[in-house]
Design a protein around this nucleic acid. Structure first.
Length: 867
DNA sequence: CCGATACGCATTTTT
DNA sequence: TGCGTATCGG
């Protein structure tokens, strides 16, 4: 191993300092992982450490695995194998399993995932007769999680004046009690949630000095990756373990701290030197990833943050191009522009697809990019969404495994007691829970001895429970003797899950079967590899331990075709790409409006943008749309303040002169979505500008997305009927509506038009100027009768009962004359001052009272003649 | 237990 | 708008 050649001076110094606490501040792309792997190798090769005396903590399984592989290449796989390297959670799980007796758990305890926690909290809220609209399970879960991450026990929570006051202010004063019950129920179920893995480790060390001492001796050197992302509990455990020998090295970058919402405390890294006196700080400032321009642009951005550890990140790569900033008219156009750019790069510069990433702030933005990529035939992969282990069918199977391994597991019990259906309904389950709570035992214990625990159910139900018990007991008998694969497949077969899924042949259930097959394959794989390694039996318990801490990031997709990566910025942390598109650079999106109230929140958003920028090696594109479809409504957007945070010398902004190569858009319906219309370049700017004004004015109205149930009648109009649910009816000048608007149905009649009928579901009926609709618009049907400057005297009866069918009836085209007064759907009242062209090309110039002069293409304009 | 329907909600999410 | 979940009736 040649440290001199492989490392730069800063890296080498960080590697070689081993006699006390050290903090390595690693700028983006500065070779952080390199330092960690070399350092671990160095400890073993040069400092005489045995691998089992080194503890290296990471945040993801992936990071741990990659690091281990790299170390294995240096010191050999045999030695690397014995390193204690893994995520906080997996390492602590290992310790807790070993020391389970000390904290009063059985060795086979379950690890509850986030949805188990939430479901249990929900159940407790219900049992306490609290309103789950005030006590939102998600909110309570967050509070409990925060408490645990801050090492606050239920008792301390209840005793804390501050917390009680905060909960009282938030009108959720029972949170402490929910926490207490939740804590006890987890113990009753012999289960720990993710936060408990940390909390109980801390408690174990705190209350059992001998255990702590043993672990302190074992872990003679401790390394922690991504220290900026540690929470208080993690920080405290590191402190516990390293307190004596102080041989601890933490690596991180405060500028990349983006997980405060998960409890990460940036102060852990900012104040590390205070916790460990005499800490040596090493800064890695040379960026090997990005061009000088990208690095300097990112520097200029992050300089806007107050709280940070100063560093001078620099690059010695080529200067490179400036970051391109592109404006799009709409979210759809933004997708188009990005896709075109990708095609161009691929075609002209032979950029491989897997060298390209599209990054955004929120998952909701993925859809548009998916669609456009599919349309253009560009291979892509969207990351995020439901992970394999969160799919229903997979969870069901795992729940069987869990209950067999740990029959006290309440969440697993509830999940499968009636799956597949065996006639044990909610009432029975509620009774079981009641009896269990009353006697302080698990649900399983209640059904093992129903009489002893006074379970009050009828004979039939008792027989059904008996059947379930026998089924599970059959598996339990084998759990310690049959290997994981064999027992697992037996459970899947015998439990009737497969049978249930084979019932119907829908695509959906086929894919469920496939998922279960995939799970079985994984199980077989797991059993086999472990058998090869250890040459001993592997049981379901071992499989569950591993699987409970796996995430989607760890599942291999199996295909390595070059694809464009589409993901959130959070998910992109730690990755790098030749070309990066950062999209949706808009106010109210990025920075997220939820974070903008505080400096702290805003600084974290800025760090998030910093992370995004520093993913790029060569090219970086920023884009924003001027309008975006959100929550079913059109919103108008302005560029993100973060673009202005970058020194403009590093930016190349598209000039805003007419550019006919770019697709143009027009508004195609009353919701204001803009669609591509070739050959209407002259119109788009007009539409965009005025539409913006219109919507800005109207915004106070349209921003309410809660229940709408109203009818509005304006001058000389009449409404008879009912608007229910989210239905709405609007009639204006000389128009009339008779009927019902229910669900999300809407009926709109304007000037001299008439609607009779029903708009239900998401149906809509729109009649304007001199038109008439009779009939039913249901499901997603829509009916439109219009003159809209084009037609007059429309009268017809339409029925569009189901999905997506729509009918439009048009009459004759209207002609405009100079001097006529019109009422435009958006611009209001105006006077015709010029008319040119005929037929489809007819165009008029209108002077609007409020909106100024506009040119309208009569084919598309929506207006009525009023005089 | 299901289907239809109604309603509320809407960042990010390493374990 | 699109989704997950609560609710009701058969």
């Amino acid at each position: 191993m040649n440290f001199e050649r492989e490392l730069n001076e800063g890296q080498r110094k960080a590697v070689e300092y081993c006699n006390g606490p050290s903090l390595v501040i690693a700028g983006a792309g500065s070779g952080k992982t390199r330092v960690l792997t070399y350092k671990i190798a160095y400890l073993m090769e040069e400092q005489g450490y045995d691998p089992w005396n080194i503890l290296a903590l990471t945040f993801t399984n992936k990071a741990a695995r990659e690091m281990k592989d790299r170390i294995a290449k240096q010191v050999g796989i045999k030695r690397a194998q014995y390193l204690w390297m893994g995520t906080f959670h997996s390492i602590f799980l290992r310790i807790l399993r070993y020391e389970h007796e000390r904290i009063g758990f059985n060795a086979n305890f379950t690890v509850y995932d986030a949805s188990d926690s939430k479901s249990l909290i929900k159940a407790i809220i219900k049992e306490m007769d609290l309103d789950d609209k005030t006590y939102k399970p998600g909110l309570i879960e967050e509070r409990i999680s925060n408490a645990k991450n801050r090492l606050v026990t239920p008792q301390q929570y209840l005793d804390s004046y501050d917390l009680q006051e905060a909960d009282r202010d938030a009108k959720i004063s029972q949170t402490g009690e929910i926490y207490r019950r939740y804590w006890n129920r987890c113990r009753q179920a012999n289960a720990m949630d993710f936060d408990d893995l940390l909390f109980y480790t801390f408690l174990l060390f705190k209350e059992h000095p001998d255990v702590l001492a043993k672990n302190q001796q074992q872990f003679k050197y401790i390394l922690v990756d991504e220290y900026q992302d540690t929470n208080y509990a993690q920080h405290c455990i590191v402190l516990q373990l390293a307190a004596q020998h102080q041989r601890v090295c933490v690596v991180g970058d405060d500028a990349q701290s983006i997980y405060s919402f998960r409890g990460a405390e940036i102060d852990n890294i900012l104040n590390f030197t205070k916790q460990f006196q005499g800490t040596k700080i090493f800064k890695l400032e040379q960026n090997y990833r990005s061009t000088q321009t990208i690095v300097e642009a990112a520097n200029s951005l992050i300089a806007k943050n107050k709280r940070q550890i100063h560093k001078d990140v620099f690059s010695e790569k080529e200067q490179g191009e400036r970051l391109q900033v592109t404006e799009a008219y709409s979210d759809v156009e933004e997708g188009d522009i990005v896709a075109n750019q990708i095609s161009k790069l691929h075609r002209r510069e032979q950029v491989a697809y897997d060298e390209i990433a599209i990054l955004y702030r929120t998952n909701a933005q993925s859809r548009i990019f998916e669609e456009v990529m599919r349309k253009k035939g560009i291979p892509y992969r969207v990351y995020g969404g439901l992970s394999f282990y969160q799919r229903k069918e997979v969870k069901d199977v795992i729940a069987y495994f869990r209950l067999v391994v740990n029959p006290n597991d309440e969440e697993a019990f509830k999940r499968i007691i009636n799956y597949p259906a065996r006639g044990i309904g909610d009432t029975t389950v509620a009774k079981i829970i009641g009896a269990a709570t009353q006697h302080g035992v698990s649900l399983w214990e209640v059904i093992t001895q129903p009489t002893a625990y006074e379970l009050n159910v009828n004979k039939g139900t008792l027989t059904k429970l008996e059947g379930f018990r026998t089924l599970i007991n059959g598996f339990i008998e084998k759990v310690a003797t049959t290997d994981a694969y064999e027992l697992g497949t037996a459970i899947i077969k015998t439990s009737g899950i497969m049978g249930e899924l084979m019932q119907d042949r829908t695509a959906e259930s086929m894919s469920r079967q496939e998922n279960i097959e995939e799970l079985v394959n994984g199980l077989q794989d797991f059993t086999q590899t472990h058998r090869e390694e250890d040459n001993e039996h592997i049981y379901l318990t071992d499989y569950l331990s591993e699987v409970s801490l796996l995430t989607d990031q760890d599942t291999n997709t199996g295909d390595d075709d070059a694809k464009v990566t589409i993901m959130t910025i959070h998910a992109a942390k730690g990755l790098e790409f030749g070309t990066v598109f950062i999209v949706g650079m808009e106010e109210n999106l990025f920075p997220s409006p939820m974070c903008c109230n505080s400096i702290k929140g805003l600084e974290e958003e800025r760090r998030l943008f910093y992370v995004a920028l520093t993913r790029a090696e060569e090219h970086c594109f920023l884009s924003y749309a001027k309008s975006r479809f959100r929550y079913g409504k059109m919103e108008f957007c302005t560029p993100s303040r973060f673009i202005r945070d970058i020194d403009p010398q590093y930016l190349h902004t598209d000039k805003q002169s007419p550019d006919l190569t770019r697709p143009t858009f027009r508004q195609n319906n009353s919701f204001g979505r803009w669609d591509y219309v070739p050959g209407e370049e002259h119109l788009d700017r007009l539409h965009t500008a005025s539409a913006q004004r219109y919507w800005q004015e109207e915004r106070p109205y349209s921003s309410h997305s809660t229940t709408i149930s109203h009818s509005t009648a304006n001058s000389h109009s009449k409404i008879e009927g009912v608007a229910a649910g989210r239905g709405s009816m609007t009639a204006s000048s000389h128009s009339k509506i008779e009927g019902v608007a229910a669900g999300r149905g809407s009926m709109t009649a304007s000037s001299h038009s008439k609607i009779e009928g029903v708009a239900a579901g998401r149906g809509s009926m729109t009649a304007s100027s001199h038109s008439k609709i009779e009939g039913v618009a249901a499901g997603r049907g829509s009916m439109t009768a219009s003159s809209l400057g084009r037609f007059k005297r429309v009268s017809s009866t339409l029925v569009s009962p189901h999905n997506g069918q729509s009918s439009t009836v048009n009459g004759q085209r209207l002609t405009l004359k100079v001097g006529q007064k019109i009422q435009h759907e958006r611009f209001g009242i105006g006077e015709v001052i010029k008319v040119e062209g005929t037929g489809d090309n007819a165009k008029a110039t209108i002077r609007f009272v409020n909106a100024g002069e506009k040119q309208l293409l009569l084919r598309f304009a929506r207006f009525t003649i009023i005089d």
